[in-house]
Nucleic acid binder design. Structure first.
Lengths: 141, 141
DNA sequence: CTAGGTGCTCGACCGCGGTCGAGCACAAGG
DNA sequence: CCTTGTGCTCGACCGCGGTCGAGCACCTAG
């Protein structure tokens, strides 16, 4: 087993060294990361494989705490169902996000359509221009 | 024109008073909010109408800075196209978000499918169990 | 001896959008 | 007089996930 340094892990995974250390603090790894005689972290290729897996979960926007939980279950030898549930739980969150974004998009489309309709109907400006004018012509005390 | 206090605005819009003051600092309003003799903000119904509109933009997740820009354009009497562009720009961002979330969802689905396939194929655990076992049976120094 | 490379810890800072509390001022009403 | 209600400012704090820098230790090559 070759043992590699954090810089090499960074190069292989594309993660910054600060981030890798952070992930360790958050409990992402399956076991404790060993140190060499100088106190430097040393990783083996399995660590890197695992790290790439959890980094992929991050790319899927799984929250750090969720990933930590996932790793904790793996460490503790929890049932398959429990681990799977974490993945499925996040999938659900993404599905909800998708729906939320859809609604927001619909909202913007509605606003934009109204705006355009207003302009085409000969509106010389948005519905607020009058308000701005009123303020301009009647400045406060 | 009735002038109402910030508490009443809060009640009408559902926004917290802190938030309303924050929005003022961010430049959301079309004009300066007047104060009464005691230094308290007073709003008229037009302010509330406008505030409800920008709050709707927030519900569509438009960033505060973008809304501020939108308001600035309205104040400055910018062209319709400019104002519309802000809305359309945000619409685009939402469309991008939607696509991103779709990709993340696909990623999770793939992971989950793989996991399930692995279990059905008689795997007694996830592909990493071996790694965990190896660590457990050969604990470090 | 010095420079360069690798790594360490600790703590600050970033964006984002609130959210809260302390400590104050003032008015109305019992 | 004292309470209650309303509001003010200023600055701290939250979650989230990094990202960075300072100051240090140590090895190796020239």
């Amino acid at each position: 087993m070759e043992r590699i340094g954090i810089g090499e892990v960074s190069r292989r995974t594309g993660l910054g060294v600060h981030t890798i250390r952070l992930y360790e603090d958050e409990g992402f790894f399956l076991g404790a990361i060993e140190r060499d005689g100088l106190g430097r972290r040393t990783y083996d290729p399995d660590d890197v494989d695992w790290l790439e897996k959890v980094a992929l979960l991050r790319e899927a926007d799984m929250p750090v705490a969720r990933i930590a939980e996932y790793a904790r279950l793996a460490r503790a030898g929890a049932s398959d169902a429990e681990r799977l549930a974490v993945l499925v739980g996040h999938r659900q969150r993404l599905a909800d996000d998708l729906e939320l974004t859809r609604r927001r998009l619909a909202l913007m489309d509605e606003k934009i359509d109204r705006y355009r309709a207003h302009l085409e109907q000969g509106g010389s400006g948005p519905p607020w221009r009058e308000v701005v004018r009123a303020r301009a012509s009647a400045p406060g005390p």
